[in-house]
Design a binder for these strands. Structure first.
Lengths: 219, 219
DNA sequence: GCGGCCTATGTGACCAAGTCACCGACGAAT
DNA sequence: ATTCGTCGGTGACTTGGTCACATAGGCCGC
């Protein structure tokens, strides 16, 4: 409850709220959600505005065939824009959100959400910027899927996910979902990359050998 | 100037504004933009919040190879969400907007836009709903491009664009852009559809012969 | 330390879609 | 009638996705 730092201060963009708004939000107790839990699926009704405090939630778009594509990840301090969509546009969720780690989140009820929008400029800015960011990022996903070849998308994904030592912890399936492709194609591409000496492969991990070599593929 | 109906009443969602907000907006004079004019391109800086009153503006995403894909069309009463993005998210435009007809629009300066967001709930709702709608529609475009086969997308596009008599006025290139494909593929698909007797082809137009036949392809 | 079982990956054959290069056909303008 | 620009047709080829299986590693219970 009276933690050293209140959750409001761990959510960038909400730390600057004015006094009255702050009081109203402070009353809300964060909840925790276990890893693997599905927060919502297509067709679910929207009831709350969610803000993430800890952990990571991935939001996927699912095709009729079961293929999935990663729309974006929600990281601490970010709100779940899908819920804004529902609260304001009167539509249900059209995507699926999965907790990739244990997750701590604050659920703001619809009525408080709407009233805060009216009374707090800082809150409004927070919501709008989150919105703008998601629209941008979904447009970027679209741009990549529509216009960029697999090899370049894969190289970019590997560089993005590599840790300091160049290790990428991801299965071929996960990479495929992240860049909007399928496992088989990723397996084959990775084999080509490994024959070129740019990466080396292991079960569940990929070791980036040449960052510059991969970067050169992105064009 | 003193037209029979003020432009505010021709923009659904803005007709219900409260008195003060209305006064501030009434002062703004609509501008006209000739058909074919490019309203903005990727990288342009955002200065105004645009609301369309008459005509149609199409917004495209452009790939490195010059390929384009239609993100959405703006019709009367709708705002240009791309500009909201820029005004709130501090990013420049990443898409391109083209006037498909002569266009009448109102440009709300940034400062007034931000102040209205704070003072008018109706205006806020207008902006948010437009935002939500666009995010939904961009996600739909992504879903279609990523998961739906060309044949189904084409059939849907034809049915959507057919007038009462089943006539579609569009070139193969336009259809290709609308569904995120390329001209050659559309030409070939259309030929197949015409051999099946579902459409008949002419330079610049396609005649839908069997709506039910096309509908069956959408699955 | 063996047999099951789950997950991750490898592979070939095939199909769908995009790319490239070029051609021909139509219509408007001169 | 010639020229030119737009529109549409076509073949050859590449890339990427689908389907159907084949391995193969790791964990667990026994």
């Amino acid at each position: 409850m009276t933690a050293a730092t209140h959750w409001l201060d761990r959510a960038p963009g909400l730390g600057t709220l004015d006094g009255e708004t702050r009081r109203q939000l402070e009353a809300i107790r964060p909840i925790t959600i276990p890893k693997g839990h599905v927060l919502f699926r297509p067709g679910d009704e929207v009831t709350c505005f969610g803000v993430l405090i800890g952990g990571r939630v991935d939001v996927y778009l699912t095709g009729a065939t079961g293929r999935e594509i990663l729309l974006y990840s929600i990281t601490p301090g970010e709100s779940c824009v899908q819920s804004t969509l529902g609260l304001l546009g009167e539509d249900d969720y059209s995507a699926e959100a999965v907790a990739e780690t244990d997750v701590e989140a604050v659920m703001i009820p619809r009525s408080l959400f709407l009233s805060l929008l009216g009374t707090s400029e800082a809150f409004r800015t927070f919501v709008f910027q989150a919105f703008a960011k998601r629209l941008q990022s979904v447009m970027q996903v679209l741009e990549r899927v529509a216009f960029i070849r697999i090899e370049a998308r894969l190289a970019a994904a590997l560089l993005e996910r590599a840790d300091d030592s160049g290790l990428v912890r991801a299965t071929h399936q996960e990479l495929a979902t992240a860049i909007g492709s399928v496992r088989e194609v990723i397996s084959r591409r990775l084999e080509i990359l490994s024959k070129k000496g740019l990466v080396s492969l292991d079960r569940g991990t990929i070791q980036v050998v040449s960052r510059t070599g991969l970067a050169a593929l992105i064009t």
